[in-house]
Write a protein that binds this DNA or RNA. Structure first.
Lengths: 182, 182, 182, 182
DNA sequence: TATGAATGAGTCTTCATTCAT
DNA sequence: GATGAATGAAGACTCATTCAT
């Protein structure tokens, strides 16, 4: 499986680059070079830049969801909720550049009329998260899951735009936790 | 003031274009043509595309804020809150393409390291909105104002990405109202 | 002869593709997929795209010539002439996209300095056609054969370029018949 | 009129290149360099390669038609006919690479579905040439004009493909003259 | 025979921006 | 204030072909 290995290397290299610079500031040439193959070879594995970026992002999100599930094992309802909110905020705060990448890919999928790409992930996310919220005894867990997603993305955005000066992450986390419990 | 008039025409034309197509899919050439002047002339009025787009967006946001203030005149606390949430959702739902434009400009300011551009507007927004929330008797009005901003942007984003299938706007509005009151 | 069978399948698939789209718009990848083998396998049977396309075309032309010969069996001189002209026009009118393919391959052989590829077919064509013309009592049958070839190609070209609006095929056929008889 | 001058220079340079090499072997980069401006500048004047090439070709054809008209001044019917056929053959024989360029552009317009581009020229050509033929007393001048066009293109093609070995130009010219008179 | 990963050279095109007039 | 010619840097993508397996 030479191909699988190369593919992995490409996705990794792309992720590194996308966490450093804007989507539009990363070229396929650059990714190819970093992954140690030719531009043509890169396109052999991914038919388009958007396609590659989408793979990168969804790989990340899937890992996040998996990781979250693992962390919840054996926790109480209340603890589950805290862990969920923690994990959501980690997504924002660990690498600010990465949330930018999220945003950029959102936009790119809008631009290319590929919003359908998100349906499947949304389904998975809502399934997992609303079940966590249900376990934690939250009212209207589906709506809460939606709210959490929107809040996290919105907060990430404003966090980025204000250079982190707009709010204290810990403060906000508490606030969000309160909303989720509500 | 011939210049003022031309400027206005440019901003208007740009707004129309930006509500139709993606930021990156609108060229300065196109804007110039629509505004009825040459590319050179356009750059005479706005030093860069980003600068023009920012003007467009902030003009819009300022109008929104002004309009909101006017609508609040003479209302009770509770009514003020409802009006605020209504107005926030109008921003999302009136023109979906426009929220895309917001998102794109957010991103562009990140790319160009111009995030400071938002400070002034944030200040004005937080001032106005938190005072509304305070009047309405909300606990922790500053934090609430932040949350509202994030929620609205996040919801707009997910609304766009799901093609409106993710949630019922009215449902969400109620939920948000509840949070603001909380 | 597994190989022969595969070869045939390739040529058939390529022909189908070349009658749908321009030579340059058909990729070896596409042909391979349609023929049900890999790109590498395709190149195993044909050393180059041009080589494959040439095979496709000459197969077609050979079939045409063979078919023509068969149709002439037992006809009078005058009938032979009519059949010849008919057959020539069939080549143009049956599939317009196909005459485009002719043209494209002509050009490609010029580009690759492979014009010698045509010598053999020309020889065969001129031999067959001029003998038909001679039987039909035409003056200067060799020159007539040349003229017929040129006319057919030229008419095919203009037919294509005008979308068939330039002339009535039947009208032209009569005119050409008159020339051949002249 | 700096622009007009540049445009002329571009068309000239492109013509030189297109008479040396195949359409696909000439790059816009190359044309720009030869014309002494940047690639961007080139695209400022011609929105696409095809567009430029079309301009080059039609400029040439228009000049040919104009030149022909001038040469016919004061000639007798028979002389007009001879001059017409001469001029047509000159188009083929003067620069073989040029007729290749014709062919290539024909093909490109087919590929890009731009065949309508030829309508106007066809109209002009048929008008001029059929009136010459009418003056010369030819039967069915419109059909003859069509035939002449097809013959010239077809002969050019075969001339190219055979490297000039297929026929003697002068011989063919006589033959064509005879057809036109017929 | 066949696979498919990899190459590498090449292409058109886009566009914000500058500047001489 | 305005024009439009010109720049230059970039960028995604294509594809015939080769080759190790």
């Amino acid at each position: 499986m030479k191909g699988e290995e190369t593919r992995r290397r490409i996705v990794e290299s792309a992720l590194e680059l996308f966490s450093e610079k804007s989507y539009h500031d990363v070229s396929m040439e650059e990714i190819a070079k970093k992954a140690g193959l030719s531009k043509g070879g890169l396109f052999h594995h991914f038919p388009s830049k958007y396609d590659l970026a989408r793979t990168v992002l969804f790989t990340l999100l899937d890992e996040w969801l998996e990781n979250l599930t693992a962390r919840l094992e054996g926790l109480s309802g209340r603890e589950k909720l805290e862990t969920l909110v923690d994990a959501a905020f980690e997504l924002i705060t660990t690498s600010p550049k990465l949330s930018r990448f999220f945003l950029e890919l959102y936009e790119e999928s809008l631009r290319l009329n590929k919003t359908a790409d998100w349906d499947e992930f949304y389904g998975r996310y809502l399934g997992s998260v609303s079940s966590i919220l249900r376990d934690a005894g939250a009212r209207d867990p589906e709506k809460k899951a939606l709210l959490l997603g929107a809040l996290v993305d919105g907060l990430a955005l404003h966090h980025l735009l204000s250079g982190g000066k707009l709010f204290e992450v810990e403060d906000m986390k508490e606030e969000v936790l309160r909303i989720m419990e509500g």
